[in-house]
Each structure stands twice: as structure tokens, then as C-alpha cells.
Design a protein around this nucleic acid. Structure first.
Lengths: 360, 360
DNA sequence: AGTCGGGATTTGATCGTTCAAATAGAATCC
DNA sequence: GGATTCTATTTGAACGATCAAATCCCGACT
């Protein structure tokens, strides 16, 4: 048993502290069950031997992997806004660690590959549940996961799903409409009256929601709104072209609110080209916006991560909850974004960077 | 044993196929040891029962986690170039999956927290080794890992380490000097003669290496080189200021090669402001470069990922190699980057994007 | 016919932990 | 004083796989 070589096991600790295995286990998992004196003795032995429980042994016995799977999107698909997932992933990893939960990555090309991956990771007890991102209109993954009774939480609302309040489906999202509303009101406070909206073509849940925020706050007549609302693919060049067209029209707008930083970048390009300086606001507060000094709507990614974990495991539990009905309170949460104001009046310099070794 | 409820175990399959557990295990891990007829019978049973081996049980017994840890950098630290890590992570996850290896994320604030995390993940048998990125000058992590004999490979050379060919240290990197050389020669082929270099301030290993590529290929007199080489923090605004200064000087350069896309973006901003159209080349080929139509040096991230795994586990093994001496061939690899030409003559449109639902 | 060899398969032990139930010991109650 | 309760600890049996060694089987060789 207690071979002096190799890493120590719980039995080695038990022997050293003159107690049984189970008592050591209790010191680690249920310290309240152990007499203080005994506990100290065991803790001493743990310390002395540098004992750490073997993760796989524990997972085998408890039948819990304490691991959550999350997909890393193909880089090609996320463009500039990929950094949103990036920031979210970081926050999620940190918050999960606080609960003793690990984050396992997986890659998958296409829906079916992803469903297969869901199945495999669950069947092999590799993960207890999933965090799903980049939800689309009528996302097949959602219905599949619900149907298979696999625990998951999505970052992103169930666009195009009949009942958004279905308790079997747990989700967290950021109120995009409110974000755009804030952006619109901000440029209005700078004096703009004819605020244009640069968004995406129609079959996009997120896009429509963001546009809605503009509709609610731009204060324009319907026919004028139609003129000042454009929808283009999420690329700077596309946006630049569309914005140029608006600027060269007979009644150009006097500010631009955009559905993404890519679009905002395009708008800014078109403006610079004409030597104009009209307010532009982006969405997602990516590094590009920071680099260009563009104002942008920022998603509270750390709060989103926390909310995701709360929905998955309860307020402060470390165990994934299978049945959403066991979860007290609502099974979805809509968080408010923040507007990061840059350039113009704002003191441009807020964040201090120092490292240049950003490579590799 | 074979309770009809719950997920099936290897014993259930054995019973169904009228063989022993071990034979089933062999069908899965060493099919060559099993008689074809028996194998088919077992495979049938596996299929029928939908059996999948329990990852933790396997890991406990084999004493191998088949998992690699990688740190997710704080978002604040990586800026635009964060997408390099992003792309690498994606490639790594895909390639690792091909070898039956999983990628586990961890977060850590500061070196000491990261060393503690190394220790914990290894002691708990959570991972078999690490992939280390964002290596810095005299990186303490490297020496620590070598000292502790923990298997790892770094993406990034050992800047400031005495012996870069020390076999105990396995690394993969991209030849930045060659990349900048390609960039310089490219703008020269467009007619530029006075190519400026926009890099970072001195104590940066990567920065110096990239600058070296320019020194080797710019073909300028030493005193002229001194004039056309600038070093600023990795921010677009900083670069814009520096480039503006060069442009307004008595002998302005006629092209700009930059150490990053952030810097290239700044250079482009300064140019657009002046209505000039001089060639600018960035580095890392981030989404920003694509959005702005900037040429950029692209790192072969997928190849880097493959090389990292080869150094960690051998040409096509699925097991992390502890002792680098057991690895045939060199323990480090320097890969060549590629120049992605955009704008100007190049057909601007190559990659087709369609999704707008890039959110969340 | 007997022994050897080697491929195919089985057997028993083990990896390191936690669960569930049993036990020991002290305190409480009537 | 004896039954009862409660707290602290121990015991034996899993969890589900693989390792190492044993066994079985069949054909070949002497």
C-alpha cells in the first residue's frame, strides 16, 4: 500500500494521521463531521505528505465529472466578435474554478458533428453538462439537448422557439435592444437628431433585437426610419459602402449606431474618407473599438458567466443540476449591457497596457 | 452487475457477447489481439448496447488523463492579437481530438498563481502535461516546469534562455524574422524603396526578432535605418502618432511594415487622415487586418498545433511523453509564416462569410 | 503419443476514492 | 440502570476500467 515512492494516496494520509480512509475523506469533503482535534491532525498529515485527491478516482466513485463542455467556434465564423466568446470563456473558466468545476473544450464542424460530440462526452462521463453559445434561429442543438435531458445553459436566447420561458431550457442573454437604446440616446445627447442604424440582414434574431432598440429610441417618422436603417453582412467593407451611400444622399444622417464593431469600423472608415467627424457607436466593445477609440456597447461577460453557472448548478452549488425543476427561481436571465464611451469628450485613456509580448 | 437501468459497463457488453471483460477491452484497445469472429461479435454487442467506456475509470486504471492543460490568457492582456491564441486553441483542440486527447482550460492571474495551478493539475492527475503560450523574456514558468520534470511544450521560443536547443525544453515557434522579410520584400516589389518598420520598444524578444527581418531586407544605410525604425506600445493610437511623425518629416518613407496588426491599423489611420495610399503590412492576420483589407503575415496555427502535439506525444502517439529523450528527432521546431496579400492588386474577396449570428 | 509453442481468452488483483452501513463511545432520558 | 439518541469513526463494498499472469486450445514438431 503505502509505498514510499509515487504520489501519496488517501490511505497514506490515513495511516500517517492514525485514522481511517473515510475520516480523511470527510476532512476534505465534509469537515463539519470531523472532531476539530482529529481534523487538525489529518490536515497536518495532508500538508506534510502533500496529498491531493486523484481526480479520476473521485469522479469514478461519485459519478460526477465536475466538468463542463464548451465548444470553441471555428475562427472563420466569428471574425472580430470572436473576442466576445473569448472574454466569456475566460470569465467562465475563472468562475467555474471557484466552484471546483473544470472547463473542457471541444471542436465540431457543423451541427451533426456537435450533436455527436454532445453524446460522446456525456456517454463517456467526460462532462456533466454543456454551455452552448452562438445560438441561431431555431437552433437544433437546443431542442436536441432538451429532448435528451442533457443539462445545459445557453448564452443567447432561444430565437424562434415557441416558449422562451420553458423551464426545461435555461438561458442567459444580454439585452441588446437596451444596449442600442443607450447608444442612440448617447449620440442624441451629443446633439445628433438623425441617427442611422447599421445592422445585419433580416433573418437574424440578435440583429432584429438590436434594431428594435434603435426603433424605440430614434424618434424618427416611419418613412425616415426606413431610409436610415440598413442591413449588411458583418464586414467593415460592406458597412463602409452602405454608410458612404447614406452620407452621399440628399439627407445624410448625423450619427451611426451599429450592431457590431465590425460595422462601426466600416462606418468610421467611410467618415474618415470624407473628412467627417460624426459619432459612431459599435457593439461588443472588442479590441478594435478600443484601438480605434470608438464608443461601444459592452456585454457584462463576467456576470453572464456567473449567471450561466448559477443556472447550471444553483446559487452556489458545485454540482450540475439535472432537472431544472430542482432549481429555485427563474431558469433564464436577461442582463443589461453598458455603454463604453470613447473619443470626443471622454478622456481617451483609461486602460493601461504594458506587455508587447502578445505573440504565440 | 448488469442492471438493466443506467449506462452499460464493459461487463454488460462481455455478458452480451459471451466473452470476458478483458476481451471487450481488447476489442477496444488492442483489436489486433482478438480473433476476427470474436471481434465482430463484441463489436455487435457494443453497438447494440451503445456502450462507451467510462473516461474516469479508464484514467484511474491507466494512470493517464489523456488531457492537456492550457491557460486562457486574461483578455485585457492580449488585445487584438488575442485572436492568435484563439486560432491556435481551436487548431489544438481539433488536432488533439484526433489523438484522443482533451484540452482543459485554466485561468491564472500572475506567474505564481499559474505555477500553483500547474502543481494542482498535475498532482490531482487532472492533466498529463501543458501547452504554454505567451512566453516572455526569461519566463519563470519554463525553468520551473523543466525543473519539476512536468511535460510541456511551448508555443514561443525561450527568449533569454541560455541554450535554446536544450532537449529538456520542447518548443514550437514561427519564424517572425522571415515573415517580416517577406512583408518587406512584398512592398518593395510594389515599388517601395524606403520601407519603415513600426515595432515595439526594446525588451521584447519577439519584437526584436521581427525587426531583424526588416533590417536584413530593407537595404537601407545604417543611419537611414535608425530614422525609419520606430518602437511604440502595441496600440493603434500610439502607432498612428509615430507614423504621422514619420510622414511629416522631411524624408517620409514610402511603405510601412509593422510588428502587429494593431500597429498596422494605426499606420493606416495616419495615412488615411492624410489622404495617402502607401502600402502597409501587419502581422498575425487578425480579423482586423481582414476587415481593413490590410496585408498581413499569417502564422500557420494549424501546423503549430500539430507540431506541438508531435513534440508532446511523438509523431502519431496518443500518450504524452515524459522524458524528451525518448523523443526521436529534434525537440523544437521553427515554422515558416505566410504573407496574406490584400487590397491593391489582390482580389480583395477570398473568404466567404454568411452568418450574422456571431453573438454570444 | 507426448511435448512444445504460441495465439486467443479468461482470471484475479488493482487503480484511489466515496458510499452505505456498522460500530464504538459519550451523553440524555425516564 | 438500561434503553435511547447522537456524534465520531471505521469497515467492507463498490465505481468501471486495465494490467499481469494464468489458462485454454490447437496445430506442429520430434
Amino acid at each position: 500500500m503505502a509505498r514510499s515512492t509515487g504520489t501519496p494516496t488517501i490511505s497514506d494520509v490515513a495511516k500517517a494521521a492514525r485514522v481511517s480512509r473515510q475520516t480523511v475523506s470527510n476532512v476534505i469533503n465534509r469537515p463539519d463531521l470531523v472532531r476539530p482535534e482529529t481534523r487538525r491532525r489529518v490536515e497536518g498529515a495532508i500538508e506534510r505528505l502533500r496529498y491531493r485527491p486523484h481526480a479520476s478516482a473521485r469522479r469514478l466513485r461519485t459519478r460526477r465529472s465536475s466538468t463542463i463542455g464548451i465548444r470553441l467556434d471555428p475562427v472563420s465564423a466569428n471574425g472580430i466578435s470572436g473576442s466576445v466568446l473569448d472574454g466569456f470563456l475566460h470569465a467562465l473558466t475563472e468562475r467555474a474554478a471557484e466552484r471546483g468545476i473544470r472547463i473542457l473544450l471541444y471542436a465540431a464542424n457543423g451541427i451533426d458533428a456537435e450533436l455527436a460530440e454532445f453524446r460522446r462526452l456525456i456517454d463517456e462521463s467526460e462532462v456533466d453538462g454543456f454551455v452552448v453559445t452562438s445560438t441561431t434561429y431555431g437552433d437544433r442543438r437546443i431542442s436536441w439537448l432538451v429532448e435528451q435531458r442533457i443539462p445545459f445553459v445557453s448564452f443567447g436566447r432561444p430565437w424562434g422557439v415557441a416558449d422562451m420561458t420553458d423551464r426545461r431550457y435555461r438561458w442567459v442573454d444580454v439585452d441588446g435592444a437596451a444596449g442600442v437604446r443607450m447608444a442612440t440616446e448617447h449620440v442624441q445627447s451629443l446633439g445628433a437628431r438623425e441617427v442611422a442604424f447599421v445592422g445585419w440582414p433580416s433573418p437574424s434574431g440578435i440583429g432584429e433585437e438590436r434594431r428594435q432598440g434603435w426603433i424605440e429610441s430614434c424618434g424618427l417618422a416611419p418613412e425616415r426610419m426606413a431610409e436610415l436603417s440598413v442591413g449588411v453582412a458583418d464586414e467593415a467593407t460592406e458597412a463602409a459602402r452602405a454608410v458612404a451611400e447614406l452620407l452621399d444622399s440628399s439627407r445624410p444622417p448625423d450619427a451611426f449606431v451599429c450592431a457590431s464593431d465590425s460595422l462601426a469600423l466600416g462606418a468610421r472608415m467611410a467618415l474618415v474618407e470624407r473628412g467627417l467627424e460624426l459619432p459612431v457607436v459599435g457593439f461588443d466593445d472588442t479590441p478594435v473599438a478600443a484601438a480605434m477609440g470608438l464608443s461601444s456597447v459592452s456585454q457584462p461577460l463576467s456576470d453572464v458567466a456567473e449567471a450561466v453557472l448559477e443556472l447550471l448548478m444553483g446559487p452556489d452549488g458545485g454540482v450540475v443540476i439535472d432537472d431544472p425543476d430542482r432549481l429555485a427561481g427563474p431558469t433564464h436571465r436577461l442582463l443589461q449591457p453598458e455603454l463604453v464611451v470613447r473619443g470626443e469628450g471622454a478622456s481617451a485613456r483609461e486602460e493601461g497596457k504594458e506587455t508587447c509580448d502578445e505573440d504565440a
